[in-house]
Amino acid sequence: MSWADGVFWLLAAVALLTGWRVFRTDSMVRASFLLLASFIAVGAMMLMLGAAYLGFATIFMMAVEMMVMALFMVMFMMNPAGLNPMVMVHQHGLAIVAGLVTFAGLSAFALSLDLPDRPLPGGAEVIAPLGRELLGPSMLVFESAGVTLLATMLCVVILSSRSGRFGPSDLGSVPPAVDPAIEEDP
């Protein structure tokens, strides 16, 4: 049990603890940044596995995404700051069972695999091979990712912004009646 294992288990404990606190805390901002803490612990674990770039990239990406998630959760959730008690879980029975089953399944799958054991020499450059792979054999994946990102950007713009170059997108539309039985004439 070298100190590296100790650090690994510590990070695992941090990830699990903060992950659990995400659903037990009332404030949405705290929930988002606890989830970020959990992702940072996972990112640190990836760094310990020698993924020098992916570890910091995870921390960087998750920081930005949890910031945006916090903004949206506060914008749309009732009681955003947790001033009144907030219940973040529902269907307790089903959720617990599903959680346990998934955990057991994943653990069994992970333990049953014989993962390759070709450790890299310490301090080996990691990003250059990733770059060569990206611009070589996986070129198609790289460019298709570009096109997928473009599709995402277009859909995001279309779905989220009300005003466009032709004026407000809901011009003339009538919000649906609360009680479907009452047919509102436009």
């Binding site: 009732m78 009681n79 001033l83 009144n84 008690p85 907030m86």
Partner: peptide, 9 residues
Amino acid sequence: QGGEGMMGG
């Protein structure tokens, strides 16, 4: 804490 439900009190 002086509140009721999600948004009350």
